[in-house]
Computed example of a mutant assay.
Amino acid sequence: MRMRDTFLKPMHPEGRRFVAAFAVVTLILFLIWEPLGWIGVGLTVWCYYFFRDPERVTPLGAGLVISPADGIVSLIERAAPPPELGLGADERLRVSVFMSVFNCHVNRAPVPGEVVKVAYKPGKFLNASLDKASEDNERNSIVIRMRDGRDLPVTQIAGLVARRILCFTREGAHLSAGDRFGLIRFGSRLDVYLPEGVEPEVRVGQTMVAGETVLARLDEVAS
C-alpha cells in the first residue's frame, strides 16, 4: 500500500457539496484573518474525512453477521424491533454501534439477503448513545431476509447533531454482506436485531469496523 493511500481515502459523493462549502468558507476566513483561515482548513479536512468511503474486505463464510457501522458497541440488550416493521413485540438481542463524528458514516449490510421492508419514522435528535434513542429518535429501518428465511432488522438512528438519514436501498433489492446501504450525517447509531438464540461475539466498548468485524455467527446458536 502506498503512503498516499493511507491518508487519502475515497469520499462518498454525498460529501462533495459539504466539502466544497467548507472550502469556500475557509477562503473567506483567510480574507478576514489568516488564523481563522487555518481553523477553516482543519474543519474542511475533518469534513472530508467524515464522508470518507474506504474499501473494506468483508469476511467470507456462511452464517456471519458483519458490523454495519464503524464505531463502538454502546449497548447489548434485549428489545423488540421497531413496531413499524411489523415483526411483532417479541424481544430479540439488540447490538447497538455508536458512531461519533470522527467515524466513517457509510452503513453496510450485515448479512446477504433480500430487503423485504424499509420503514422511516420521524423523531427526536437525542444523544444516540442513550438507550431511549432507539425509541425516540428519528430512524430508518430495513429488514433483510436471509436465504434460510430468517429476518434480520437493521435500524439507522439519528443522533444529537445528525439531521438526515440516507437509505440507498429499497424493498426487493438483494444485498451482499458488506454492501453499502445508507449513510447518516453527523454522529449517529446502528441497531442490529439478532435472530432468536444467536449470541453476539462482541462486547460493549469494542471497536467495530463496518463491513469487516464479525458481530455474530448465525450457525452458533446458544444452547
Rank of each mutant, 00 (worst) to 15 (best):
R2Q: 13
N137L: 04
P195E: 01
A222V: 11
G63M: 12
F102Q: 12
Q156C: 03
T169D: 06
V115H: 01
F50T: 15
E114Q: 15
V24K: 12
C47G: 10
L93H: 02
G149C: 08
R78M: 10
E34Q: 13
R145T: 14
A222N: 13
H105E: 08
Q156D: 05
I76N: 01
E84K: 12
S134H: 08
G15D: 00
P195T: 04
F50P: 10
G61K: 09
F125N: 14
A62S: 12
V214K: 00
H12G: 09
D136Q: 15
I39E: 09
V106Q: 04
L85R: 03
T155P: 05
L75P: 01
R170F: 06
Y193C: 03
A128S: 11
I157W: 04
E196H: 10
P10R: 12
V118P: 05
G211T: 07
V209L: 08
A21T: 10
F98G: 07
R16V: 15
M1N: 09
E171G: 11
W33F: 14
I157C: 07
P54C: 08
V111M: 09
P122C: 10
E77I: 05
V57G: 00
L27V: 14
T213N: 02
R16C: 00
N137Q: 04
G211M: 05
E77G: 07
D131H: 15
S223Y: 11
P54G: 06
S176F: 07
G182Q: 07
G63S: 14
K9Y: 09
A173K: 03
I28L: 15
D179T: 08
R17F: 00
L29A: 15
W33L: 11
R150S: 14
V111Q: 04
E114G: 04
L175A: 03
R108Y: 00
A158M: 08
L183M: 01
P81N: 08
T44P: 10
T58S: 00
I72L: 13
S176C: 05
R94G: 03
